[in-house]
């Protein structure tokens, strides 16, 4: 497996000497689903922002698809973000006065895809995410869970090398959160989508293939998770009669 994202010795210091990251080495393989967890202030969102070029490291390297990106100009980063990275945020960040369809199509058109191709991809994505019926509505009329699905469609329209998700279930009730996680897993299982997801929620992290636990700006531990089977359940429940 080729790594899609690699970081080496990544640090981020803010003014006043606050060290948000103190040397992070991470490698994410193509098709992997990685969750980054940890208490607030551990540096997990800073890490995601550095991976997506929304922030710049103080030192260290970031590689995306084999290409060093940490020193790129903002204009070049904008191209990398548009072509290689899909973002999903906690509060959806949709454009309220555009329709659902236009929100999803916009990044595709900006990337120079033909309108016909963009329409086809948008229709297929909305359908597979179960929100095809809302294409012509404003996203502001939708529930949180539905809005997050629109945001996922928008993030996937350019078939990004990696999907970066920052607390994607943080603003949702538990039922919607589970639906959104099921859809992210589906994108991973069926499209082989590489995903890096930041969450403070253990239940959400447990859906990933690998969990990186951060502490004080560094990766403290790493856990590979195996799929469960039926016998595991009875063992876990320890229900006795």
């Amino acid at each position: 497996m080729e790594p899609v994202i690699v970081t080496r010795g990544l640090t981020r210091e803010y003014e006043g000497g606050v060290r948000a990251l103190r040397g992070v080495d991470v490698s994410v393989d193509e098709g992997e689903f990685v969750a980054v967890t940890g208490p607030s202030g551990c540096g997990k969102s800073t890490l995601l922002n550095l991976l997506g070029g929304l922030d710049r490291p103080t030192s260290g390297e970031v590689e995306i698809g084999g290409r060093r990106v940490e020193a790129l100009s903002e204009a070049r980063w904008a191209h990398v973000r548009r072509d290689e990275i899909g973002f999903v945020f906690q509060f959806f960040n949709l454009i309220g006065n555009l329709s659902v369809a236009d929100n999803v199509e916009l990044p595709g058109l900006l990337a120079g895809l033909s309108p016909r191709e963009v329409r086809a991809r948008r229709a297929e994505l909305l359908e597979s995410l179960g929100i095809g019926e809302f294409a012509d509505q404003s996203p502001t009329r939708l529930s949180g869970g539905q809005q997050q699905r629109v945001a996922i469609a928008r993030a996937l329209i350019n078939r990004p090398r990696v999907l970066l998700a920052d607390e994607p279930t943080g603003a949702l009730d538990s039922a919607s959160a589970r639906e959104v996680m099921a859809l992210l897993r589906e994108a991973h299982d069926e499209r082989g989508q590489t995903i890096v997801l930041v969450t403070h929620d253990a239940r959400v992290a447990a859906r990933a293939d690998r969990v990186l636990a951060m502490r004080d700006g560094a990766v403290a531990s790493e856990t590979r998770l195996e799929r469960g089977d039926k016998t595991a359940v009875a063992r876990l429940m320890q229900l006795e009669v």
Binding site: A202, R203, A205, A206, R207, V211, A213, A220, S221, T223, L225, E226, R227, G228, D229, K230, A232, V233, L236
Partner: peptide, 18 residues
């Protein structure tokens, strides 16, 4: 604590896969 956290996460994963 890290080892225990890994075990609990794995258990949570197995329950969610059911």
């Amino acid at each position: 604590i890290d080892r225990q956290r890994a075990a609990y996460l794995q258990a949570l994963r197995e329950l969610d896969d059911v």
